[in-house]
Write a protein that binds this DNA or RNA. Structure first.
Lengths: 252, 252
DNA sequence: CTTGACCTTCACGTTACGTTACACTTTATG
DNA sequence: CATAAAGTGTAACGTAACGTGAAGGTCAAG
């Protein structure tokens, strides 16, 4: 049985443009061209098309399909497993995105409808979510999952009072920072007070404090553009100053 | 704090091309253009970019992001829910694809195992049946039911490896036969090697080996047209030569 | 013989940028 | 202060997998 292009297209449920394209990229050539230049397909091509569409269904890109169809059935087998892994990773990513939206929505809902109590709780969640989105990857990489999870857990466990205290401390740090910088000396008393407040502030979210971790974080502030931008809002070189103050404080 | 394009790009972890593109599609315009035509961004633009990147993370396309950012926060809320639904559907589709690959792989594995296990088993059965049909009567007559039944039982009990070895031996015999014939001497070393391999080959299906039975089989090869035709495919007189070689080997 | 359904080959549009190419401006260095 | 290096600008092509015409040839039916 022979088919013209649109017969085959109908049979396969695709467009004839698609078949022309597959011809063009040498994925599926017609069995012959008739005297008027029409593409004619035979049974072999139908079978091949079946395979192609199967792989396409699985979201394999056409380049890969071309490769796969030139490989031994053993390699096709492993290519399939390979592809499945990609899909699984994609799904994991989707899981995370869906969860993030859940959190964001919960947060927004909280803002619109909820009481102060719940608003506070939702805010903490969004703080956690935001931290995760912004810095999660680097921090997890640098300090490990345990550190991050514990930090999140601690944030979740915070009371309203704790949070208020933390926020107050954060503001104090921002008040202190320009004053400390004005001294020009990271070992000055005011700079050391700044570093101490920063340590206190940290312990609100850090499950355990260590000098090394504190210094490491200070270095990361400087190294990471986003942290840097956060502190440099106060003044140019503020991040570096904070780092130096912390290092002096810790090593004191 | 003001930022040039690549400062902002670094800050946000994206390329400056991306920022130019966002300018082009009116997704994110710089706060102003300086005298040299450089794009300058301010705090407001940073905040907007944060939102944009958040939505982009969630795989919202830029066209939709533009729309969302022009909407009220209530509509943004429902747009987010809308998008989440799309993601959930995408995930469901991925679930199906992953399952399909699982099934396909299981199926192919099944086919492979079948072809190696079941097919082999089926092959052995047919070998036995064939033997029975072809030679059963004569052999049963000549060597008795017990011999035949034992032989069949042994065949049935063969492992894949046994079978592969038997097949290999059979091929070696067929390779060796013309070479042995070329010597013209059934007592030649190569002819004796041939006879020994034939003995080994026999022990795969014979429950017990005896010199008499081996010689008897050799005579039967010559006497029986079907055996004769089988070996004479190699060369004229091959069956007789094989018999002579076996007799010499056994009597040696 | 005409009409309409099919077929052909260009060739542009789509998304979200990456990647040159070329010209100009700012910053760093000797 | 001259020059080199780094940064910025616009313009334009490339990507994947086709969709969508446009312009023109082919085929079966009335």
């Amino acid at each position: 049985m022979e088919y013209t292009i649109s017969k085959l297209a109908k049979l396969a449920g695709i467009s004839s443009r698609t078949l022309r394209y597959y011809d063009e990229i040498n994925l599926l050539k017609p069995s012959r061209i008739n005297s008027s230049g029409y593409r004619i397909y035979g049974q072999k091509e139908i079978d091949r098309l079946q395979q192609i569409l199967f792989l396409r269904e699985l979201e394999v890109d056409l380049g890969t399909i071309i490769q796969i169809m030139n490989e031994s059935s053993f390699d096709q087998f492993s290519a399939l497993l390979d592809h499945q892994n990609k899909l699984i990773q994609k799904r994991a990513r989707l899981d995370k995105l869906i969860e993030t939206i859940d959190k964001t929505i919960a947060h927004q809902k909280g803002e619109i409808v909820m009481s102060n109590e719940e608003k506070f709780k939702a805010f903490k969640e969004s703080l956690i979510a935001e931290n995760e989105v912004k810095y999660g990857e680097e921090i997890r990489e640098k300090y490990g999952d345990k550190t991050v999870d514990e930090s999140n857990a601690k944030l979740r466990g915070m009371s309203k009072e704790d949070y208020a205290a933390m926020e107050k401390l954060g503001n104090e740090i921002f008040d202190l920072l320009p004053k400390a910088i004005a001294t020009g000396d990271p070992t000055s008393e005011i700079a050391q007070e700044l570093a101490e407040k920063h340590k206190e502030w940290l312990t609100f979210s850090w499950a355990s404090y260590s000098k090394e971790a504190h210094k490491g974080l200070a270095e990361m502030y400087v190294a990471d553009e986003r942290f840097k931008a956060y502190y440099d809002k106060v003044a140019k070189g503020a991040t570096e100053f904070l780092r130096d103050a912390i290092i002096n404080y810790v090593d004191k």
